[in-house]
Design a protein around this nucleic acid. Structure first.
Lengths: 194, 194
DNA sequence: ATCACTCTACTTACTGGTTAGTAAGGTGTC
DNA sequence: GACACCTTACTAACCAGTAAGTAGAGTGAT
């Protein structure tokens, strides 16, 4: 149990918060330690003190997403599939409403070939977890006879996830597209908006 | 009508070809004039001679996409909707098979907030054209009674386009996802693979 | 209680590399 | 000799990352 001061923990969290905002609006390659340090009111080297290399910061960001998404799944585990679907939609909306952020998986896959391997590995795990959650909703929806669709739950989950990822990006061009896609997914699953 | 030498036209085309490859694999912010000039075997300033600012190069790239996509639509205009759908799928496949490239609209929307306004405007127009084509396929498919789906053709087109855009990106994590999504779209439209 | 010491969380000051972009000069072709 | 198409040589800004120093808070011995 190593003691970490409150100041350190707080600064570290604030760095992650600022970096997250920059990641989801500008992408990993288009933000610098300067952006973070000036937003935080400290010097460049202070950021390097907490996250020596930018790769460390990237890995920490994705790991935090994974912990957060694990808590999200846990909180929604006992809900029925229709509520889980709406919860998934709300998560998507929440991104866009905050500075037109997009889903982290969209950033990570688009910039994939330019990312350090350590971040790629975390991204793989994170995205697999998100895709699996979409598939789980589709599977439970069919098992509990509240969703009706052709094909396998796996395929339906992939389409739902891919459409929301793409939809979030396209919403930057046309904000209305996100609602259209959410409603069409409901229609394709033959469910009513709850 | 200003005369342009063959050498110039050729170099200009080769710059665009290299830049396109870099754009679709690395993104606009993650490639430089150095990347292009070294791949082309010329000096940095030679690229600036043809495209003074990087913005000029970006605009030229998107405009070329638009011309190319216009020709694509013209070539497929007289086909039946099922063939148009498969043509759309083939276009998607072609991107991925070439160095895991993704759809330009995925790059442009993901990096949107970091792009110069001139490129944003071209991107808006290009993406609108691609989305409209997807909607046209969905509309004609229903009108000619070869596709069956809930919701409006507009909504179905948006979901198809967004799912393919997201699917291309996710294919970098799991190559199989693209085929899964294509087949699920066929199933959702109640059409057979042609 | 106070001096000596240690540690955290920074700062200042820097390096070497990369970036887009430019100015001026050269060379071959019509 | 005019022009297209390049080159060499450069600038200023930015990038990630580092080395060395410091202020202040806490600790421990006397």
């Amino acid at each position: 149990m190593k003691p970490v001061s409150n100041a350190s923990k707080d600064t570290q969290k604030r760095i992650l918060d600022i970096a997250e905002q920059l990641l989801l609006t500008r992408g990993f390659n288009a933000f610098s330690y300067q952006h973070i340090s000036s937003a935080l009111g400290v010097r460049n080297a202070a950021v390097h003190y907490h996250f020596p290399r930018k790769t460390d910061l990237g890995v920490a960001l994705v790991q935090r997403y994974r912990r957060r998404f694990a808590r999200f799944m846990e909180a929604h585990a006992s809900l029925d599939p229709l509520q889980q679907l709406e919860g998934y939609f709300e998560l998507t909306d929440a991104y866009f409403q905050q500075d037109e952020q997009i889903c982290p998986s969209g950033i990570l896959t688009t910039e994939y070939h330019t990312l350090p391997e350590e971040i790629q590995l975390e991204a793989n795990a994170f995205i697999t977890e998100m895709r699996d959650w979409a598939k789980t909703i589709a599977r439970r929806g069919r098992d509990e006879r509240v969703m009706t669709y052709p094909g396998t739950p796996e395929a339906m989950g992939e389409v739902m996830f891919a459409a929301l990822q793409g939809g979030l990006q396209l919403a930057r061009i046309d904000a209305g597209i996100l609602d259209t896609i959410k409603q069409q997914i409901r229609d394709l699953l033959k469910v009513e908006k709850s």
